[in-house]
Each structure stands twice: as structure tokens, then as C-alpha cells.
Amino acid sequence: MSNARPDPEARLDAASEWLADRALTGIGDAAALTAVPSSRRLASALDESLELTAAAVDLALFPPRETPPAGLRAKVTARLERISEAAHGSAPLPRSPAPPATAPLTESPRWGWYAAAVAVAIAAFAWWPNPRSRQVVEPATPDALRLALLETPSTRMIAGACTDDPLCAAQESCGDIVWNPERGEGYLHLVGLEPNDPQEFQYQLWIVDATRDERFPIDGGVFDIPADRDEVVVPIHAALPVGQAALFAVSVEKPGGTVVSDRRFVLVAPVG
């Protein structure tokens, strides 16, 4: 019996149930997602049909009838105009090198050398005598860089769905990804995920690239959540160039991370 192949209809149900949970509550059931074969997991994660269904039912049951306050139009249009202007010719924000992360990111040795070189360059630049100012250039925090990236063209914020893993603090945690595909730059933002003991396990970010074989997601880096932090922002350092990010996921892995995930997910963020 244990060797029997899963019923294809049962697989579809598992995927649909996971999507239904996500559409209604923002939380996907980890067990349901795990039951979905890896060959279907990407397609399932990208499926918005049940979210669209929930939206249509919402509009049908609770038709929008409120009028926005008078001042809101100016706020919205100002922000959109800023984005639109940035997208049409004004100088893009300088790409900031990765600063010290709120949650330290462990990288592979190959990228470690690169990071070290960048760090040296940053330090050299920051301390180079400036004839016009003696101000010390303060490295931007990951949170500030995340917000700056959010304002740049092509950047998207992708909502993450936490699973029902116990590390998600009784399903009260959440997160999002701010990702700029043109720059290949992004930040993982997590709230309420349980702190980890790096000697016991670490969190690892994965990026499913639609231009690559889905079975081999890109390692986005290993990171820790300190015990005194309820909220962390982690710069994403993809081990390989990302062609088209389709899904971000955070898993629980052995210390140091792994090249093949155990697929114990705590957060899934389909790009859509």
C-alpha cells in the first residue's frame, strides 16, 4: 500500500485546497503543499484562479459603496507619478551594495569572496577623504534599502503565505519579498517567525526560476533570526543569476544550509 502511486485526483485536491486556504486567509497549509508533487508545485503556486474566485465572490457579497476621502487622490497620484517618472528616463537610484544584514546571511565560499571584495570596496569608498565634506557615509540599513528599492521601477512586492509550521508562531507570522528582476536585487522581510539556534537549524531562502528546471531552485542564502528580533529584513543573495523569479520560499534546514532542501517550508511567496 505504501508503494501505491498517489491518485492524480487526490493530488489536484491537495493543490486546490492549499490554494483555497491561501486565497481566503493568506495562509497555505504546509501539509497540503507537501502533498502536491514537485512537478505541479510551481504551477500550483502560480495559480491565481481561486484568489480571483474569492475576489469575485467578495464583490458580489459585499459590493463596494464607500467613497474615498478627498485627500487620498492626491497621495495616491503623487506616489504613482513618482514611480511613473522614474520608469521613464530619470536617473535610477544607485544600486546600493549589500550592507550588514539585520539577519546575517551565510553564503557559499565562492560568493563569500565576492562579498568580501565588495565590502572592502565599500569601506574604501566610505572612508575616502571627501574634499567637500568630512561626513562619514553611514551604510544604509537593510530596511532603508528595501524601501528605496520598493520605489524603483520594475520592483514588485510579493506577499508571502506562511505555512502552519510550528515555527510560524501559531500561524501568526508573515512575510514578503521585495524584488527587482532587472537588478536581480531583493529583500526578504519576515515578521513573527520563531528565532533559531544556528547550532540546531537555520533558515534558507530558495528562488524558483521559471527559466530553469523547477526541480533545482536557486539557493538564496542561509540566515538566522536572532532571539531578540521579531522582525528581520534579509538581503537576498542568489547563488546564480535569476532569469525569471516565479516563487520564493523559506525552508528550515540543517546548520549551514543544504543544496537539496528537506522541503520543510515556513513561507511561500509565488510571484504570480
Binding site: 493568506g26 484568489e51 464583490l59 506577499a159 508571502g160
Partner: peptide, 21 residues
Amino acid sequence: TTFVAMITRRRLIDRARRRSR
């Protein structure tokens, strides 16, 4: 309309979880 409502709901659910958990 449905597409925009979907994006809106997604963002609002995420904010609600973030705000109060």
C-alpha cells in the same frame, strides 16, 4: 474589477496579518 479586487484583498490580508497577527 475582479483582478484589482484580488490584488487588493491579497495586500489587505497580508497587512491584517502583519498588523495584529
